[in-house]
Simulated scan of single mutants.
Amino acid sequence: MKGNTITVRLDDELAPILDQVCRSSGRTRSEVIRSALKRHLAILRFQQLRRQAMPFAAAHGYLTDEDVFDSVS
Rank of each mutant, 00 (worst) to 15 (best):
M1C: 05
M1K: 12
G3C: 09
G3D: 09
N4W: 09
T5Y: 06
I6K: 04
I6A: 07
I6F: 07
I6P: 01
I6N: 07
T7F: 03
T7G: 00
T7E: 05
V8A: 13
V8D: 08
V8N: 08
V8L: 15
V8P: 04
V8I: 15
V8K: 07
R9L: 10
L10F: 14
D12Q: 08
E13W: 02
E13V: 10
E13A: 12
L14I: 03
I17Q: 12
I17G: 03
L18H: 09
L18K: 05
L18W: 04
D19P: 00
D19E: 13
D19V: 00
Q20C: 04
Q20F: 08
C22T: 02
R23C: 01
R23I: 02
R23Y: 10
R23M: 06
R23Q: 10
S24Y: 09
S25T: 15
S25A: 10
G26F: 04
G26V: 00
R27W: 12
T28W: 01
T28P: 00
T28F: 01
R29D: 10
R29Y: 14
R29K: 15
R29A: 09
S30E: 15
S30F: 04
S30C: 12
E31T: 03
I33M: 12
I33N: 03
I33R: 05
I33L: 15
S35Q: 12
S35K: 10
A36E: 07
A36P: 07
L37Q: 03
L37F: 14
K38T: 07
K38V: 10
R39G: 08
R39P: 01
I43K: 10
L44K: 09
L44Q: 14
L44N: 04
L44V: 08
R45I: 01
R45N: 08
R45Y: 08
F46L: 02
F46C: 00
Q47L: 13
Q47G: 04
Q48L: 00
Q48A: 00
L49A: 03
L49E: 14
L49F: 02
R50I: 01
R50L: 11
R51K: 13
R51H: 10
R51I: 07
Q52T: 04
Q52L: 06
Q52P: 00
Q52V: 02
A53Y: 02
A53V: 03
M54A: 10
M54H: 03
M54F: 06
M54Q: 13
P55A: 08
P55Y: 08
A57N: 02
A58F: 04
A58T: 07
A58P: 02
A58G: 03
A58R: 15
A59S: 11
A59Q: 09
A59H: 03
H60D: 09
H60N: 12
G61D: 10
Y62Q: 02
Y62F: 15
Y62E: 02
L63E: 07
T64L: 06
T64V: 11
T64I: 09
D65Q: 11
D65P: 01
D65C: 05
E66Q: 15
D67F: 09
D67K: 10
D67P: 11
D67T: 11
V68L: 14
V68F: 15
V68Y: 06
V68P: 00
V68D: 01
F69I: 15
D70V: 05
S71D: 12
V72M: 13
V72T: 06
S73L: 05
S73Y: 13
S73E: 06
S73P: 01
